[in-house]
Design a protein around this nucleic acid. Structure first.
Lengths: 193, 193
DNA sequence: CGGAAAGTGTCAGTGACTGTCAATCATTGC
DNA sequence: GCAATGATTGACAGTCACTGACACTTTCCG
């Protein structure tokens, strides 16, 4: 069985336990027992207990990066980001993925420690997206070339995403328009060019 | 000796060790020994090892809140936030505080775990500032009354603050203008009213 | 003086995580 | 077929953050 498949089995079992008992209240020993392996082996597939929950989020980051790279280089950064976020909305149309994300969302929000780790990941993702846009601007005229402004711009776009997700939940019918409305309201004055 | 004074003594000793050996590499036992107390007593003054570093940041949050409350209620939110952030710049003019903040900044950025905890704190602070502004808008016409947009707005302003701090360091002469430039660039198109 | 309250040390325990070693199992070269 | 090899695993021991329980001292207040 492939590494990815084992990770997936562990993650499924772990999330079930997390939903049932809470994240902090579930021990790694219990997770390992649920998949029928030693605690030591659990840590060979996930570097930490946090990782089990945040791993699925990692792939979302990769997809987001890919979508952003695919946007036309002369598009305003704000619009490129908004279109990349739309991929998140798309993902939520698959009912299975939606249920899963809802569960993850609940687990993360219930544990300050996990929430912090999640925000740490988001921060690094924002950093890498900023560099991506910085490279793009260097090759194309009209783009934002100030790394500080660019980093803040990406941060602002993610603030919209986070706010919309937090307040509107994961129902795509509600979440989509909510994100559009928020990003329209926050659109930087100078970014319409 | 007051509780606050003891905390301060612990924090000073701990930060010295963190700078010398790194955060993860310093054990709580070592910190406790450095102040001459048992490990158990250390945890009576700080809930966790993280807390020692993040505690000083907590007070900055309180000051920021106070400054924001003091701004005129009819001022655009973006400007109120920028003026509140200026208090952070002011704080950096005290050379002693600046050195301290520089040290903290270095420690936090060197440890992903601490960075995550720091971002978690910032997130909660942003939440409470959003509520503050929401209340203010309810009492005054012209303010932003949509909680989602407001939360994103605060997030965007903090993204500017973070980006400026990260890229420009803690030299007030550089940091101040950098923050102004970034917040001017990110100013929402609809927030000029 | 006496007794409550607050602060502290000690000790034992839990849970996340790591290093190590030996056994197992699949792969590869002969 | 078979032995050498490398990867995967379990078992065990150890570290470190953190917690609960209890006993002891100091301080404060009547």
């Amino acid at each position: 069985m492939s590494r990815r498949a084992v990770q997936s089995r562990i993650a499924r079992a772990a999330e079930e336990l997390f939903v049932a008992k809470g994240f902090e209240e579930t021990t790694v020993d219990e997770i390992a027992a649920a998949v029928g392996m030693s605690q030591r082996s659990f840590f060979r597939y996930f570097a930490s207990k946090d990782e089990v929950v945040l791993d699925s989020l990692e792939r979302l980051g990769e997809e987001l990066t890919a979508r952003l790279e695919a946007r036309p280089a002369d598009e305003p950064e704000w619009d490129s980001l908004r279109h990349s976020f739309a991929s998140v909305v798309d993902r939520l149309s698959d009912p299975e993925a939606r249920d899963h994300d809802r569960a993850i969302h609940g687990i993360v929000n219930a544990s300050p420690r996990l929430l912090a780790a999640y925000l740490g990941r988001l921060d690094r993702l924002q950093g890498s997206l900023s560099e991506l846009l910085l490279d793009r601007a260097a090759r194309n005229p009209g783009g934002e070339t100030d790394p500080v402004v660019l980093r803040a711009l990406v941060g602002g776009a993610f603030a919209c995403l986070q706010a919309a997700m937090h307040h509107c939940g994961v129902e795509p019918e509600v979440f989509g328009p909510c994100l559009d409305r928020t990003m329209a309201a926050l659109r930087p004055a100078g970014a319409s060019a």
